[in-house]
Design a protein around this nucleic acid. Structure first.
Lengths: 304, 304
DNA sequence: CATCAGGTATACATAATTGTATGGATTGGC
DNA sequence: GCCAATCCATACAATTATGTATACCTGATG
């Protein structure tokens, strides 16, 4: 067999791929933990090697040429295969030391995960933990994380999913704020209150209106995706927001908003990992640990 | 987007792939024009990076571990994509300078191609030519060559095929050898002659027996795939072999074996290139040049 | 059982790649 | 129309990967 077509520097293909996807050399360099000159040189070397202009240098970032757009398909295929390789390789590794990346919501990352991670670090000092706190869905097939903890069952195939616990939440407000509202005693009275939503589309809005509220966007003067910010605003008496029962009940500055007809918010929390990774000792250790910790957490809370 | 899974050194994946396919680090190094220590270090680094043993070091060569066998599937996919990338990239290149690899039979490479290449080199000094002279079928999809000139239509898809010329051949023998045989005048008399075949399976044998000969393997005391060797043996009066009409007729040491009922050997010669390469200026230049040269060649010979 | 061919691993010098620092250029906002 | 931010290209130093030479190992062969 001959390998003429394979002799080229594959790292240059990688540089091409990431640069094309990220849109600029600088962004690609950040993504790959390299420097912009390095990426620039790799891409330039690839262009010279194959004799094809891949990008048009524009003031702001780079732009794929028509040829580049066709060729990026192939390096994307390489990247997909590289992903599968990496995924499968990690699954077959049996060394316990190393990095584990967990992605979860800001709520869980802030209020629930930290003590668990502390405990895990003590029992497994060789495992380094990286937590990506984002409310965006992440793609485990691309190994954006090893383990995800989400409040929905992911749609992707090839994943292992397990229910962690049933989360229960309520509306909370600062005592001072409720007093200012005149201690509302019905849903109707709450219709003039202010709430904090995650996004303009109004997730909380539609949830509450489904329960008999009659809210409009006027009731949501503050919008932030960041749960911590939400919570601080509520503690300061700015508005009302939803919060996990166990967190809200333990915060002295706030109290549950209790009116007839208002039912608790419930959701399920799932832990997810890629099928391939389940066979990795390190991933399995963390996965099982979290499952067990969340079981303890739920039991402890249910009893109290 | 995150690129955790893609950050690893892709050249190490390439080293893994070629080593697995070739069976040893040394062979892989030869295939990639690198040195064995380099390949060894790359593979070792990959093994350490992913924490998986890919090969068992054995005295003679390396042997894939079970994990390695599974993982090589993915790097093979990377390699296939790399192939497609390379193929497509070369097709989109518009620089005329560079290397072109032509594979053809020993016969054509020795007797017909050289003057054409000489002429091409003069008109296109920027194009470097590499000629692979082998009677084995080569795989253009894997870019073992850019252009192939063969006496059969290749079965592979994605190829561009064009008939170059009709080749005519005869049996030739040294005058001295024919005298020793008593200047045979019939096929029957030739049945006691010696011939030279390409391989043990007996391509020439079956060809001649189909024409009324009654030959066995005893008639083929010398077997060599190498046409040059065949031809030299014939000139020395060792045996009879087939040869292109225009070459044989111009060789004073030999003469056509002419007996009643013996018909010329005919075949078609095809030029082949990959579809993607046809759009490459360099390949197209050489391709078109060869088509035109072979047309001239056939005309010139037909008139004489 | 000795020899030889082919293969792998290591030491060291060399070559190539990478990072740092910096200049120049373009875009978007005020 | 200017300023700030962002990005690309280049010079030089530091790091890293590579090749050469060589020792050592294994399996085939006579």
């Amino acid at each position: 067999m001959d390998w003429r077509a394979i002799k080229f520097d594959w790292n240059r293909a990688r540089a091409f791929l990431v640069t094309a996807e990220e849109g600029s050399l600088a962004a690609a360099a950040r993504a790959l933990d390299m420097t912009q000159p390095t990426l620039g040189r790799q891409v330039a070397a690839l262009e010279q090697e194959i004799g094809v202009d891949l990008f048009n240098r524009r003031g702001r970032g780079l732009e794929l040429t028509p040829n580049g757009m066709k060729l990026v398909e192939h390096v994307r295929a390489m990247g997909d295969a590289a992903n599968r390789f990496s995924l499968s390789a990690t699954g077959k590794s049996d060394i316990i030391e190393g990095n584990i990346c967990i992605t979860t919501t800001e709520l869980l990352a802030t209020f629930i995960l930290p003590p668990m991670i502390q405990k895990l670090r003590q029992s497994e000092p060789g495992i380094e933990i990286e937590i990506i706190s984002t409310n965006d869905e992440s793609n485990l097939n691309r190994r954006e994380a090893d383990i995800a903890i989400r409040s929905f069952r992911p749609s992707q195939q090839e994943l292992i999913v397990k229910k962690l616990y049933d989360v229960k939440g309520h509306l909370y407000a600062a005592t001072s704020y409720l007093q200012r509202l005149g201690n509302p005693n019905s849903i109707d009275e709450l219709n003039k209150a202010n709430f904090i939503d995650f996004e303009k589309s109004g997730r909380l809005l539609s949830l509450l209106n489904a329960q008999g509220f009659n809210l409009s966007s006027d009731n949501f003067p503050v919008i932030t995706k960041n749960h911590n910010v939400q919570w601080e605003l509520v503690k300061q008496g700015v508005a009302i927001c939803g919060m996990l029962e166990e967190i809200g009940d333990n915060e002295p500055l706030v109290e549950r908003v209790v009116v007839p007809g208002l039912v608790p918010i419930t959701a399920k929390v799932w832990i997810v990992t890629h099928k391939e990774l389940r066979t990795n000792r390190r991933v399995r250790r963390v996965f099982d640990f979290l499952v067990s910790e969340f079981a303890n957490y739920q039991n402890k809370y249910d009893r109290s």
